[in-house]
């Protein structure tokens, strides 16, 4: 009898794992709560470090899902999962019940709710937006303006919003925001060649391939300026611009400046779906709220529950490159497990 895997979460991790498993002749059911597959990447515009159109990624992954072994249920959420003699039974909001030999959790991450960072005034000040809002704006329009319609002359990108911040409830590094800030700063500069752009960072974590090069390009070619210091507060001026404060830690002096637009680089936080399903299944979480691995080096797709595997950002923030690799690795682990 063909073995069957239920994959929960149809972002890029779930999609890649599904196609990899199908190529090994394993039946896959891919369940996604939204109407469409693709997750967060599906809503993104251009990707670091090479400004590739994000649609190329989702298009390619979707293409690979066209296989007789793959069944897809969108607009479907999980209501319950039980395990009987090594087999799983998955129930959904569409009143369906599916049997599975193994389950892959690829329920991804949630975006940090920037309103929690009260002192930055997201949702209160007119010209404070998030990196996700900016990406939408870049996707939808050729011009970038302040709320008033005026062209901004100075823009600040604020790193680590909801990351490395215990007060906001998350001490982990979201990994992708530094390079996203650099990418978006360049894109903004391309749209607004006369604007001054400042990145306020604590550390610049340029660990990935071509990240450091992009950082240097941002400085050298685009004149993006970098201030090392965490923003302490923002306040709205009479004209809707913002007065922001940080320490310029490299000169050891407090600094204030006015900016027309402030972009908060919001982090990745454990998704509600992951927490919900994880608790239902008795899965162990680490202190950061993401799913835990007992062996972080050699068994990074395994959970403490035999038969339940992980792929992608359910275990920690990841780039697309890392997520895809993680999904393939999960598929291999599952294939070994069910045979």
């Amino acid at each position: 009898m063909t073995k069957k895997v239920v994959i929960i979460g149809g972002g890029i991790a779930g999609m890649e794992a599904a196609s990899t498993l199908s190529r090994m002749n394993i039946d896959v059911l891919l369940i996604e709560k939204k109407q469409q597959l693709g997750g967060h990447v599906g809503e993104w515009d251009h990707l670091f470090p090479n400004f590739r159109n994000a649609r190329e990624i989702t298009r390619s992954l979707l293409y690979d899902l066209q296989d007789k072994h793959i069944k897809i249920c969108t607009s479907t959420e999980i209501t319950g999962i039980s395990k009987k003699s090594g087999k799983f039974e998955v129930r959904t909001t569409q009143q369906q019940t599916f049997k599975a030999d193994s389950i892959l959790l690829s329920t991804g991450f949630d975006l940090f709710d920037a309103r929690k960072k009260e002192e930055y005034g997201y949702g209160i000040y007119e010209n404070v937006i998030t990196s996700v809002d900016l990406e939408q704006k870049l996707k939808e329009s050729n011009v970038l303006t302040m709320a008033s319609g005026v062209i901004p002359k100075r823009i600040a990108m604020i790193h680590c919003v909801g990351s490395r911040d215990e007060k906001s409830g998350y001490f982990h590094c979201s990994k992708v925001c530094c390079i996203t800030a650099v990418k978006q700063a360049i894109e903004v500069k391309q749209k607004l060649p006369h604007a001054e752009i400042f990145c306020f960072y604590m550390d610049l974590r340029m660990y990935g391939k071509k990240f450091e090069e992009l950082y240097r390009e941002a400085q050298e070619k685009w004149g993006i300026q970098f201030v090392r210091g965490r923003l302490s507060e923002a306040a709205e001026n009479m004209d809707g611009s913002l007065q922001i404060k940080s320490e310029d830690t490299l000169s050891g002096r407090p600094l204030k400046m006015n900016v027309d637009l402030m972009v908060l680089m919001i982090g990745m936080v454990p998704s509600e779906s992951t927490t919900f399903l994880g608790k239902m299944l008795g899965i162990h979480f680490s202190e950061d709220g993401f799913i835990n691995h007992d062996d972080i080096h050699l068994e990074n797709n395994l959970t403490n529950v035999p038969g339940i595997f992980t792929a992608g950002t359910v275990t920690s923030p990841m780039t697309i490159t890392d997520t895809i690799a993680d999904a393939r690795s999960a598929a291999l682990k599952i294939a070994t497990y069910i045979s």
Binding site: K245, D248, S251, R253, P254, L255, K256, M257, N258
Partner: peptide, 16 residues
């Protein structure tokens, strides 16, 4: 008037 102190100069970098 002489108060025995003067208003401290701001150390903040006022970029603008």
């Amino acid at each position: 008037k002489e108060f025995g102190f003067s208003i401290t100069k701001d150390r903040q970098i006022d970029y603008d």
